[in-house]
Design a protein around this nucleic acid. Structure first.
Lengths: 158, 158
DNA sequence: AGCATTTTATTGAATCTTCAAAAGTTTCCC
DNA sequence: GGGAAACTTTTGAAGATTCAATAAAATGCT
């Protein structure tokens, strides 16, 4: 059993603090200005960038790295707000398609500047271009490692 | 209004994915192996490193970057598990002190190796020593920026 | 075709977090 | 001393997330 080195411990602690504070900060900012938590905003934002502003539920869940269950609950709530609507998928009768409504798009247009400013102020205004590059690379490595579960339950059957 | 550059957008997206997946992964790991979410584990872990394995509520909340309310609920739950107990503070009758019990310490001893392995596998085994250093520095900068709220409501009165 | 398996999406219950309000205590200042 | 203001912690309700179970539809296999 190998423990963390002093440097690793320090980095891990700082990382935990940064992510905890940042999540809290952005959730608060968006809850105040847009009436939704950060993840819900991310769903609208993701949809806004797709052709037709629509996406299959599973695809949207994968793109935003959340579970299908979480997405179902979130979409139900956002649909209640009128920012999203569901359509059934023509090619697969199990499928549902989440569609960003005009009202949802307007809400995004209205709140995006404030959110981007919050992100910029918290992160990018404080980092050098090289640090931004480093952060991107490091994040990518971590995300890649978690994207497809590594150790399956029965590795000897792989 | 200044938007994010292409590099910044890419970094931000990767960072969001990494933190979302990582949080989910570690919560799941600890829920399975220790019966508690990651933040609760962090509370026990933080307490275990203090003299007397005890800390005032507010201090513990600040050290772990969570709200007092969240801490109160968490401590109530962990107390129910027998991993923590409350003592009243002798010098300040408002104060409560969270104390790690022996059972709590044992639980930590039992589950720490698995958790450290999970953290190592997800992060530190994948990064170069320089990247670990970079991650620590970048995280520190972000955390520092959020630690004391920057823009007060009335900056002209500061 | 027929039947088991897999995939998609949702649901409800339990748990966790946030927010605002509350009660008790200490501090500040005159 | 006395009263306002600030601080510490808890509480309950509302909202969010997880997990396991469910239903419906597609796919695979023989």
């Amino acid at each position: 059993m190998k423990w963390l080195s002093t440097e690793e411990q320090a980095a891990w602690r700082a990382f935990l603090h940064a992510t905890t504070l940042l999540e809290d900060h952005l959730d608060r900012q968006l809850q105040r200005d847009a009436g939704m938590p950060h993840m819900y905003y991310a769903l609208l934002s993701t949809l806004s960038e797709t052709p037709g502003r629509r996406m299959r539920m599973t695809e949207l869940a994968e793109k935003t790295k959340i579970t299908r269950s979480r997405l179902s609950h979130a979409v139900a709530r956002l649909e209640g707000n009128g920012w999203l609507r569901r359509e059934s998928c023509p090619s697969d009768r199990r499928g549902q398609i989440a569609v960003l409504t005009d009202a949802g798009y307007e809400e995004l247009v209205r709140t995006a500047p404030g959110h981007v400013t919050a992100v910029r102020t918290a992160i990018f205004d404080r980092l050098s271009p090289d640090q931004v590059k480093q952060l991107g690379e490091i994040s990518q490595i971590i995300a890649d490692g978690l994207h497809e579960p590594e150790g399956a339950d029965v590795p000897w059957l792989r």
